[in-house]
Structures are given as C-alpha cells and as structure tokens.
C-alpha cells in the first residue's frame, strides 16, 4: 500500500515536471507593459514652474497658452481583450495589484507592467481613468499599498471630504502672465442602493483598439499609450476658455476643486462615455 502511494506521488511529480518543461518553451503567461507618453499634441510634456523656459508650452483652440507644473492621474480596472473577443481582467477589484498613479514627475510611474497575463493575441485594451465607485472609498485596510501611494505627500491624490481618490490632478499656468491653473477631478457619488444617492461620477472607461495585436507568450509586448493633454482644453466634447475668479462661471483656478464645472474637464480627459470612449488616450505603438 505504502509502495503504491509512493509510485503515485512519483508519477504526479513526473507529470508536473513534464508540464513545467513544456511551459519554458511556450509559456502560458508573460508580462505586458504599458508605457505612457504624456504630451501636448506630438510633444512629450516637460513640467515646469511659472517662469520655467524649459516647460512645454501649449496653445488651446481658444488661444490660451498654458503649461503644467504637475500632472497626475489614476489608472485602474484594466482589461485586455483577446483576438477572439474574450476579456481578461487584470486585478480589477484589487487597487493594490491593479491600479496605479501615473505621475509625470516620476519617470518610473510612466511604465506599468502587467504580470502573468495569459498567453495569446490581444486586439483591444480597456482601462478606467480614475476609480470605479464601488472601490472609491479610501479603504486603507483593504488596499494599503494604493492608499499609501495616492496619499503620499508628494502625490496627494485623495479627496478627503469625498472619501475618495482624486482621479486627475493638474497644476500649471496659463495666459501670457502665467496665472495659476489647478484642475482636480474625482467622484462625489454617495448613497447606497435603495436609499437616496447623489453626486457626480468622474470615473471614465477608456477603450483603445490595438492596430497591431499584442502577442503575449514567448514575448512580453509593450504598448505605448499617448495621453494628449492638448485635449484638456480643446477636447472632443468641450472647448474650454479658462477664466479666473470665484464665481461659478470661472473655471481656471483653483475652482476645479469641487464638482462645479468639473465634468467639462472630465469628459475631455476620459471621454463622455457616449461617442467618445478614449478622451486624451490613443495607442501609438505595439511592440511584440
């Protein structure tokens, strides 16, 4: 009896070994890398203070020159669509493993590596700009890593009063006299089903087709995504003129710290969810 058990164990081990060696030739999974290039049109953005000559300047459709000193946004809910239409979710309900803060000031954050992606050909990429409502609760116990990243002093991607994350944080300057601009977006949705609900949802779903399919397997592909911040003011949905003041019609700075007027910017950044599902994002290259 004991011998039989040993033989069985041995054969299971052999089988496992065989499976392993097969994997090495043709892996069942590999990495997939997302590389973000934040631009004004074709030019990669260089951040800078009010009078920094090195900062990348852009001019809006309405003729307002502007540049950024800070540029951050949150990415989550990443899904990969296989050539046959099957959807592979990437840790979509785990902000620690499936969400990140893209920060133009930190080069390492511009590259986000998805690990253990099932082998196959992928034709489409979907992700969320921001955090979907059900996870947007500043739950430190559940997602301590993302909470700490977003809340760090040099990041400040939390909207405390809304107990949610900031989805976008842009600081910069506009017009020839370099007036400050400050545009923060985030959701203010509150209330549970069956009770009263309120607030605006600033989360946006992005869908990007891959002209060249990404082949995950023996190779780990890299998808370069362009985020064109020219569209912040001159977007597919809204053409925005910045104006400074404290009345509700003013929108430059720092009034977009509330839900007022925020959706104009949100729709330009992340699409309006109706006829624009990509906002500022496009795929510039797939390297296999």
């Amino acid at each position: 009896m004991k011998n039989l058990k040993n033989y069985l164990t041995l054969s299971v081990c052999t089988l496992a070994l065989a499976a392993c060696s097969k994997n090495e030739d043709n892996p069942v999974a590999n990495n997939l890398e997302l590389q973000f290039n934040n631009t004004f049109k074709e030019q990669t953005i260089v951040l800078g203070g009010a009078n920094a000559s090195s900062a990348t300047k852009n001019t809006s459709a309405q003729g307002q020159v502007h540049h950024f000193s800070e540029l951050k946004y949150v990415l989550s809910n990443i899904r990969l669509i296989k050539a046959d239409g099957g959807e592979i979710p990437y840790n979509i309900n785990d902000l620690d493993k499936g969400a990140t803060v893209i920060d133009q000031a930190k080069a390492s954050t511009l590259r986000y590596v998805l690990s253990n992606v099932p082998a196959g050909a992928y034709k489409q990429l979907k992700f969320g700009l921001g955090v979907k409502t059900e996870l947007n609760t500043l739950d430190q116990l559940r997602f301590p890593a993302f909470y700490n990243t977003a809340g760090a002093n040099d990041t400040k991607m939390m909207w405390e009063w809304g107990t949610g994350y900031r989805f976008t944080k842009i600081e910069g300057f506009y017009d020839t006299d370099s007036k400050p601009l400050s545009i923060h977006t985030g959701s203010t949705v509150a209330g549970s089903e069956g009770n009263q609900t309120q607030g605006v949802d600033a989360y946006r779903e992005i869908t990007l087709d891959l002209a060249t399919q990404a082949q995950v397997g023996a190779t780990a592909p890299r998808i370069t995504i362009k985020a064109d911040f020219d569209k912040l003011l001159s977007g597919k949905t809204n053409t925005i003129t910045l104006s400074t003041g404290t009345s509700q019609s003013d929108n430059a700075t720092p009034n977009i710290h509330t839900a007022v007027q925020m959706l104009k910017f949100v729709d330009n950044l992340g699409g309006n969810g109706v006829n624009d599902l990509s906002g500022i994002f496009s795929v510039s290259q797939v390297e296999n």
Binding site: G162, T258, A259
Partner: peptide, 16 residues
C-alpha cells in the same frame, strides 16, 4: 477656492 456649497457635491450650477 474649495467652497461651492451644495454644488461641491452635485456639480449643479443651481446648487452653487
């Protein structure tokens, strides 16, 4: 600049 009253939450100009 963080103050918009009820509109801070709803985003509605009528709530400003």
């Amino acid at each position: 600049t963080q103050e918009a009253g009820r509109a801070r939450v709803t985003g509605l100009p009528a709530d400003y």
